[in-house]
């Protein structure tokens, strides 16, 4: 999921920084319009730590091994704070753990952060069923959690498949990209269920923590 340095062409890396810059601007603008923008920072900070740790949780899906991303979950719980949180989390992963890369930071932030924002919008649709409807909350939290990582996996797939350099064994690389993308289907289900369980728990004990209420 985290694309490292030296894999994508320069133009794609620059494009990634442009989209990540636009998404950061949009998110910060929405945050600054809140009554108390500082209020959401503790929650965002703790979930950034969770995002960082999630990438160490590996799930073996033979023949591949994939890890949790939790971008959909961040979207559901953090709302507009999700994009900056993911950007900061990715920066630490790239600088300290060589997971991802600095040249691809913009691309990775776009690939994981924009689906997180879309997951937030999707989760807000639960209000159709009424705020206190547990079925609506569970269903849309599942869809947001699974959709967040699903959309990210599809975007990474498109980026990688369309930029395989000619000096590589293109067929072999394409086959391994297909395998890696398909391996994310079980992760979608896991993250969807995890997001639904967390959303239902928060709705019961501290409903104001769910950004979808606004």
């Amino acid at each position: 999921m985290h694309i490292p340095d030296g894999v994508l062409p320069t133009a794609v890396c620059l494009g990634g920084y442009a989209t990540a810059g636009a998404a950061t601007w949009f998110s910060l603008r929405k945050i600054s319009q809140k009554e108390n923008p500082r209020e959401g920072i503790p929650k965002a900070s703790l979930l950034t730590a969770a995002f960082l740790v999630a990438s160490w949780i590996h799930i073996p899906v033979p023949p591949a091994s994939v890890h949790l991303v939790l971008n959909g979950l961040l979207g559901v719980v953090l709302g507009y704070y999700a994009f900056p949180a993911i950007l900061i989390g990715l920066f630490f992963q790239a600088v300290m753990f060589q997971h991802g890369g600095l040249t691809t930071l913009g691309v990775n932030a776009t690939v994981m952060g924009v689906p997180a924002l879309l997951a937030y919008y999707l989760f807000r649709l639960r209000n159709i069923f009424g705020k206190d409807n547990r079925v609506g909350t569970g269903l849309f939290a599942f869809l947001a959690g699974a959709g967040g990582i699903g959309l990210a996996a599809v975007t990474v797939f498109v980026l990688l498949v369309t930029t395989i350099p000619a000096h590589m064994d293109v067929e072999a690389e394409r086959a391994s990209i297909y395998a890696l993308t398909l391996a994310h289907i079980p992760v979608m289900i896991i993250e969807g269920v995890f997001t639904a369980v967390l959303a239902l728990f928060l709705q019961r004990v501290k409903p104001e923590l769910l950004e979808g209420d606004s």
Partner: peptide, 11 residues
């Protein structure tokens, strides 16, 4: 020396 597989790898 770069090693890559499925868009993942390092140098």
């Amino acid at each position: 020396v770069q090693v890559r597989k499925a868009g993942h790898g390092g140098m």
